[in-house]
Structures are given as C-alpha cells and as structure tokens.
Nucleic acid binder design. Structure first.
Lengths: 199, 199
DNA sequence: GTCTATATAACGATAGAC
DNA sequence: GTCTATCGTTATATAGAC
C-alpha cells in the first residue's frame, strides 16, 4: 500500500526468476564461458545493464544458478533417507533419478558446468569439488542395508559415477526415459539374486 | 636438397603438433567456446593469422583435435579384442583405463567437449552422438564371456557410463590413480564370487 | 528499476605485403 | 609460411540520466 515507485513491467521476483531460467538454459547449452550477459538480457527483455542490476556481475549468475537454485532442490533427498532406520541405497538412487528426470534443464546445466569446472581456474571449480566430496561423505554416514560382503564406499563411488555418465547419455538422447535407463543400470550394478531383498 | 623456400623457424609438422597440443589443452580447460585463436597462437608462437593458415577456421581446430588426434589413439583397443576367441569385458575396460590414464589431457578435452556438445547446435554434437552409439554397438558385436544370466547390453551401458563419470572424478582429484579408482568400480560392478573366472 | 552511452578490450576472419 | 592491418562484431562493466 502506497508503493512509492511506479509499477514496473514485472515484479522484481518475476525478473529474478526469468533471469534464473534463462541462465540455467544458457549455462547448460553454452557453458559459463559461452554465455553472454547480452544473451540473458535479450531472453528476459532487458538490457545488459538491466541484468547487471540484479546479479552484479557475470559470476553472480553462477551463484544464482548453483547455490540459489540447483542446491535448494537437491538437499531434501538425502535428508529424507536419514530418517529411515536402515534405508536402501537403490531407493535413494531411484529418488535422485525421479527428481532429475523432472528437471532436465538443471541437469544439463550441472553436467556442462561440472566438466567446464574441472579447470581449477574456473569460477565454479571449488563448488563442484566440494559438492562431489560431500555427496559421497554424506551417504557414507548412513547405515545402509546391503548384502554381506558389499563395500559400501566402492558401491557409492561406482553408482554416483554411473549416474553422472548416464545423465550425459540421457541428455544426448531426446525423448528417452531416465528412470528406465537407470533401471537397466541398477540391474547391472545390483544383480539378482545377490541383491534380492536389498533393492 | 635445394629447398626453394628459406628454412622456417620450425617444420610444418612441428607446427601442427604444437597447435594440436595447445588446442587439446585449451579445449579441455576452457571448452570450444572458451578457446580463442589468439590463445592457441600465443601458445605456439604465431599470430592468429598464422594459426588460421594451418587450420582454416576455428572449427578446423576441432577436426584436428578429435578426428585426427583423439580417434587415432582409440581405435586399436577394440580392434585388439576382436581377435580374441571369447574375451572378457573387464579386460577391455582395463585396457581402456590403461590408455586413458596415460593421456589425461586428451581425456580432459573429451570430457569437456562431450558435455558442451550435448547442445545439438554445437559443432561437435554429431561427432559425440555417433561416437557414443558406435562404442556400445561395436562392443555388442563381440562374443564376450560372461556369467549366466548377465545382460551384456545393460552391462556395457552401465560400465561405459560409469567410466565417463569416473574420469570426471579422476580429473578433479589431482594425483589419484585412474586404474586404482577403476579397480574399485570393477569390484562393485562385477562382484565376486559371481564374476569369479570372468574378470 | 531500467535505460542510453561509453570505455576498453577481445573475438573470428580476411586481404595483401613480404 | 608468417606477418601487419583491418573489418565488423561482440564482450564485461561503469556512469549517469530518468
């Protein structure tokens, strides 16, 4: 009530969301280096200066896309597993797959930036290094139910690696179902009858 | 003898090799979009125009690095397996790992371009799409020795995906041994005693 | 909050001298 | 085979008007 400024064309929140959406798509398709402020600006109907008003600098786009967007949607999965008594690794992975299958643009961005950020000089290098470490470390704190003789750490490393590689294949094959592709991987990684009752 | 042109600073072949080396490193660290002709030129001691004399255009750098360099070193592995009577999948993968462990710069380039080229508009998109398909298709033509009940196609998809993801982790962890990391993955993907005698 | 205008630099590519 | 010079375009970022 009694807003001192005249109504803008869109609310600041809408602008931010539009910038995020355009950024996620552009980072996925062109990477950080391949993305220009002009591209984002054109996409959301602003000028470069207009976009910079929201994000400060090009690196601000990274923060917006990774910390503020990708991370927020991902934390919950592992949090849900902690509450279970003796959870199944296969079930966690199926949950991850279900979440990612519904957000291809974010997975695309993650995959592209993840490779680009192998370079220690990349502005997102530390983010991805820390994230990779935390993913396995967090999973190792859970008392998974697995068949006798299974090395949980090796299994987690193998499974998460497989998922990263599979997502690349998924993004390259238009129309394919990530969950179905992962089901085949699960069959290979956790073969029956050894994993009967454990997946 | 009686060379009509004055001796250049380096032979044309040396120039080409230097350009290839600089290109592979730059594509790996910065991707195709992040790489500039000026960067390559500086690295090999030429001007932009000098580099263009060798490669024609920026896309020529891609050809040089992928078709002419990466591919040449990779074909032999599968060719060696075809000669065997009933080869082991695990042995093929160990050979791939041994080759890749010795060429981190090429693996880095492959990983970065592979993600960047998910975009259908990327100049290397078709190369990677075809390559991914051919890798599995070629492997499926071989009469592998596997335990009863193993689905070879699922296993190959799972294993190659795992290798792609593992290589990203390897490139992010300075000093780690790819072969050792893969050995852990093999334990998870081909667990004993089921795979006793088959790996 | 969004714009225009500008600064400064880099981009890929070509023409043409040597 | 390698250079200089240049074209036309684009890049990130800032200043300041409105």
């Amino acid at each position: 009530m009694n807003d001192p400024t005249p109504s803008p064309a869109a609310s600041a929140d809408d602008r931010r969301n539009a910038i995020i959406e355009a950024t996620v798509e552009s980072f996925g398709r062109l990477g950080y280096y391949g993305t220009s402020l002009q591209r984002i600006a054109t996409e959301v109907g602003l000028t470069k200066a207009g976009v910079l008003h929201y994000v400060g600098s090009k690196e601000g786009l990274l923060d917006l896309a990774l910390t503020e967007t990708y991370d927020q949607q991902t934390v919950d999965i592992m949090a849900a597993m902690v509450t279970e008594e003796r959870p199944l690794i296969a079930e966690m992975w199926r949950k991850v797959v279900a979440v990612n299958a519904a957000r291809p643009a974010l997975v695309h961005m993650f995959s592209t930036l993840s490779a680009e950020a192998l370079d220690p000089a990349h502005p997102a290098h530390d983010y991805f290094a820390r994230r990779e470490h935390d993913t396995v470390a967090n999973a190792l704190n859970i008392n998974w139910r697995v068949p006798d003789g299974v090395n949980v750490e090796h299994l987690l490393q193998a499974g998460f690696s497989m998922m990263d590689g599979l997502q690349l294949r998924w993004l390259r094959s238009p129309g394919r179902d990530l969950a179905a592709m992962w089901a085949d991987c699960e069959d290979a990684l956790m073969p029956l009858p050894l994993w009967e009752g454990y997946r």
